[in-house]
């Protein structure tokens, strides 16, 4: 007997509760299941969820890694992954608006080499911070990363210093930097720009840590407690400002951006226009 076949892609099964969900509905629900499960979101899906009218000016879309170690097999794997994912590397950066507020946004995509950071991601993030300094704009980065890109070795490690440096300069200019930690955020990304936000948000249940849970279990020789390194655990220990439901992410980011508008400047300008001296 043949089983009735559901064409692939129409339905998506929730890995937590097992319920099949219409894929279109899933997108409409920001890729969340009724049971509370959060599906992983690609960089472009995230853009569509966050940016006003999905109107986004992408930066450096063709920037790719130069395979600095000439690492055996890496070049081929890169091409294969690029074809599979349609991405050039694991990060999209650009300029858009959130609830009307202009902002530079970087979004990591964990489907590309597990979102690992190599030279392409490091360079794109650094350029974004430098542009944001020039244009006096806030930056939001959505992290999703297994850590450093192993195949780029020491160059990946140096991206941590490079991006942190650019973030520090952006901060010195008095500009706002928000990070949104999504599942998973670990390793070199956690130990650099992910933890440098003025405001650090996290999606519920996201795995966030320096060392991965498997490495810790191997090191200490014992099982880790339930909920260890989840967003809620980080909130409890004081390393995350807020856990934000996916449905409330855009409005929360919008509110934060509005709170950091250059108020005094705007006010002074408005008063000048009205012919008053600012008090």
């Amino acid at each position: 007997m043949e089983k009735p076949v559901v064409p692939q892609g129409i339905m998506t099964k929730c890995p937590r509760c097992g319920k099949p969900i219409y894929t279109k509905l899933l997108l409409k629900n920001l890729k969340t299941c009724e049971c509370g499960y959060y599906f992983k979101v690609s960089a472009y899906e995230r853009l569509a969820m966050i940016i006003d009218n999905n109107d986004f000016k992408e930066f450096d879309p063709q920037l790719f890694t130069r395979d600095p170690l000439d690492f055996p097999g890496y070049g081929d794997k890169l091409v294969k992954t690029q074809l599979q994912t349609g991405l050039v590397d694991g990060l999209v950066t650009g300029l858009g608006r959130i609830e009307g507020e202009p902002v530079m946004v970087g979004i990591m995509d964990s489907s590309f080499f597990m979102g690992s950071m190599g030279t392409a991601i490091g360079e794109k993030l650094t350029r974004m911070f430098e542009r944001a300094i020039k244009e006096h704009l806030p930056v939001i980065i959505f992290t999703a990363s297994g850590g450093a890109r192993m195949q780029e070795g020491i160059f990946s490690l140096m991206q941590m210093a490079k991006v942190s440096a650019a973030a520090a300069r952006h901060s010195e200019e008095g500009l706002l930097y928000i990070t949104v930690l999504t599942d998973p955020t670990t390793g070199g990304v956690t130990a650099s720009f992910a933890m440098l936000g003025d405001v650090i948000l996290a999606e519920p249940g996201a795995l966030i840590g320096f060392a991965g849970p498997r490495v810790i279990e191997q090191t200490i020789g014992q099982k880790l407690p339930e909920g260890f390194q989840r967003a809620e655990f980080l909130l409890e220990h004081g390393f995350v400002d807020r856990i934000v439901e996916r449905h409330e992410l855009k409005s929360t980011l919008g509110a934060l951006l509005k709170l950091h508008r250059q108020h005094d400047l705007h006010k002074a300008e408005a008063m000048e226009l009205a012919g008053n001296e600012p008090g």
Partner: peptide, 20 residues
Amino acid sequence: YCGIGAEERGQGEAIASNLA
């Protein structure tokens, strides 16, 4: 160090702060 206490007290944050 990779361990429970190191994670609870923010190993990632500590390293990030040193870099910046």
